[in-house]
Design a protein around this nucleic acid. Sequence first.
DNA 1: GTGTTTGCAAAGTGTTTGCAATTTA
DNA 2: TAAATTGCAAACACTTTGCAAACAC
Lengths: 136, 136
Amino acid sequence: MQTIRSFTNVIARLRDVNLRPTRQRIALAKMLFEGDDRHITAEMLHQETQKTNTRISLATIYNTLNQFSSAGLLREIVVDSQRCYFDTNTTDHHHFFFEKTNELKDIEAGDVVLAIVPLAPAGTVIKRIDVVVRVE
Amino acid sequence: MQTIRSFTNVIARLRDVNLRPTRQRIALAKMLFEGDDRHITAEMLHQETQKTNTRISLATIYNTLNQFSSAGLLREIVVDSQRCYFDTNTTDHHHFFFEKTNELKDIEAGDVVLAIVPLAPAGTVIKRIDVVVRVE
DNA sequence: GTGTTTGCAAAGTGTTTGCAATTTA
DNA sequence: TAAATTGCAAACACTTTGCAAACAC
């Protein structure tokens, strides 16, 4: 059965990263990791839980997003100094940011290629290169 | 005389963008636009004013940075969802962000080159492409 | 003088935290 | 039952705003 399989998948995924599969984490993981890749904020997720009679406090959602992010299940995207966005796609890729709607969209791999990558300043290591194409 | 010339330059620059050259704006413009390019936050500028007996309220600094930015005198850089950074270099260029110290550094033009630039999604126009190289 | 700008204090956002109650293993 | 997690409310950090006093022209 689809629901049972995905349920156990989510639990295994949480266990893998040493997070106890609590009711809240399972519910959030299912929302985040089943279906297509998503770009979400804490507030968006919170509203989504409320529509589905899953009662999870906003504080727990913030904490969970940060835990998932530290565990490598999510990736934080910085595009706006007002809000934290998280991406369920943790592979290397870049984003369009729609300034009118505050929405994010993945750029297809291959549609952005850096011809020259700068050397990290002495004593440092490149952790990540973020390319944000701001459109309006 | 150096001081008088720069003083009048700053005033002309403010007038150019239709901002009345008030005591506060002149002081901030001098701090920002004389000398080398800088990456600053409101709080950093505020501390700097306090060290030089220039009394300017934090609210005015926030408002002034936003006005300068709208006027094209500064450019906002989004690297951290906690703080707004402004860059006095408004020409096209990219940044290193040092995650340990929260500092920004320009990447030399030519050290980042996009080999392929994505097409803007239908109905949109690219406003800007930001490349942030996060180092640690 | 008239309209603009400032500074203050208050309000507003988004996020984190301390702690008692609850849940997981 | 021991350790981890949750939810609440309070605290936080950064930023904006309303409004009276001060300033620019």
